[in-house]
């Protein structure tokens, strides 16, 4: 015998109904139906297992170049933290640097896997025409041109200045540089989602959203550090 009491949450909580629960007769059911509902007020469609099969997902060029570009972008952050290890002064900043290295190194591996799994190169290089970067040396970060590759990336001149600085001066350059760097990542995410047809891959969507969330937070941390100085 079930005893039902209306809980305040208004969901009925029935006590002692476990026995009755197991004895309910099962309604007659046929094979599962596959339905694709229409817009509100519109008729839906009934599909078969064959017609319900997911179509091959077409990646947008921007999806691939986002991941390739972000690998390059993240790599520079790791490079900057490597400089911080020997040249920085602030302990707080060293701790922040370690955290940046954990997350960006993990993410670099994640992005490389994502690209490899889709048969895409992990670096840009073949088709750069849409980015107007022809003739650039794509090996590593030692760019020969005094122009950032991906949004926010430090130019060779900026990286040189960082590599020569030490102590408090380094810390200041690191903070302003990393804020510039992270801000670029936000731009890249925004551009991805604003690009027609891009950002529709679920894994990519989640990943890019998480980059936006966490880098935004790091920017706030670094702005706080700059203000303290």
């Amino acid at each position: 015998m079930a005893i039902c009491v209306p809980a305040i949450s208004a969901a009925l909580i029935c006590l002692g109904a476990a026995i009755a629960f197991g004895q309910e007769t099962k309604p007659p059911t046929g094979p599962p139906t596959i339905v694709q509902p229409g817009a509100p007020g519109q008729a839906g469609k009934t599909l078969t297992p064959a017609t319900a099969r997911a179509r091959p997902h077409t990646l947008a060029d921007a999806d691939v170049s986002f991941m390739q570009g972000m690998i390059m972008h993240h790599s520079q952050a790791v490079e900057m933290v490597a400089l911080l290890k020997t040249r920085g002064a602030s302990k707080d900043l060293q701790a922040l640097g370690d955290r940046i290295t954990i997350s960006q190194s993990d993410e670099i591996r994640f992005m490389k896997k994502w690209l490899e799994d889709r048969g895409k190169p992990t670096t840009m290089g073949q088709d750069m025409s849409h980015m107007d970067m022809k003739g650039m040396d794509m090996k590593g970060m030692n760019m020969k041109m005094d122009m950032p590759l991906m949004p926010g990336m430090l130019s060779p001149a900026q990286m040189d200045a960082l590599a020569k600085a030490k102590g408090a001066a380094f810390d200041h350059l690191f903070l302003t540089g990393m804020i510039q760097h992270h801000t670029g990542a936000l731009t890249m995410v925004q551009e991805l989602f604003e690009t027609p047809g891009a950002g529709q891959d679920a894994v990519l969507f989640d990943f890019a959203t998480d980059i936006d969330n966490t880098q935004r937070a790091e920017i706030k941390i670094m702005q706080g550090m700059l203000e303290k100085k």
Binding site: H130, P148, P151, T183, T187, Q190, E191, T195
Partner: peptide, 14 residues
């Protein structure tokens, strides 16, 4: 929304 560093070449999705 970041406005910095926007590269030319891509237009927002319609």
């Amino acid at each position: 929304a970041p406005a910095a560093g926007r590269r030319g070449g891509r237009a927002p999705a319609p």
